[in-house]
Amino acid sequence: MQNEEHDAGSRRAEQHKHEELVEAATEEIQTLRRALQEGLCRSDACNAGRMLAVTRLLPGCDEEQWAAAAERLGLTNWIAYPLGSDAGINLLKVQDALDDLSWKSEHDPLTGLPNRRAFERMLKLELQRAERGNSQVSVAALDLDDFKAVNDVYGHPCGDEVLVHVAHHLASGKRAYDVAARTGGEEFALILPGASAVTARLMVERLLAALRAAPVRCAGTGPLHITFSAGVAVCKGSIPCSAEKLMAFADEALYEAKRAGKNRVMISRKSPGAPYDRSTMVQSQEKQILFSGKE
């Protein structure tokens, strides 16, 4: 009886794994579908008679599982072709190598976080989504405080441990749909969809407080207290803004945070959706005339 329950449990876990696999593939397929709609391939006279099948292997999935998932995910017009283990094994190696390469090209090997390139791609996507949905996106640029001293005093292996430690804190402290990336040596960045500048600052301050409360212990050292400085910039959907500009504003705010004494979070006042756009504010000179009639 116990064994049967155990079997059922592991079958459910197996099923869950398949679904995750299919959903990851689905996201890629959706991206591909959009690219096709936007004219990835031209079907003009030159291309007449040509045809390309783009294949994605789903190891461990069978036709039944795909049919159920495709129904649920709206992918019923995609062709699923079963491969026996003999035919599949070589293709699978190729797919694995591709997966590995593609993972490496978008991730930082030390911390496992997305790298700058992936971050920029995801930010652009998120900004497009915000413009469509008329919502807002905040970004935060983070830089570890006095990191050079850690490397100099405790050595690079300890420095690496600190980076992994911070990455772990960011990845586990962010919301599921936020993005945490390592964008440079001791630089990290966050994409916070839907967050206003004020919300974003509170979120980053919480991450900073959690990090402060959890010192790192490298082999043979006492507890190391790590902090970072951060700059936040926000883009409101209705106002178009570029990823580059938004990051530049966040970086400026980051340097202000450094200048103001580190270990803190600052909001950029320049970002297009800053909480205080002063262009339409009634200024004190204007009020003077309204109240007294005199300048």
Partner: peptide, 10 residues
């Protein structure tokens, strides 16, 4: 006049 003055000036 007060409202008009501010509108005109700014």
């Amino acid at each position: 006049q007060r409202l008009a003055a501010v509108c005109d000036r700014f």
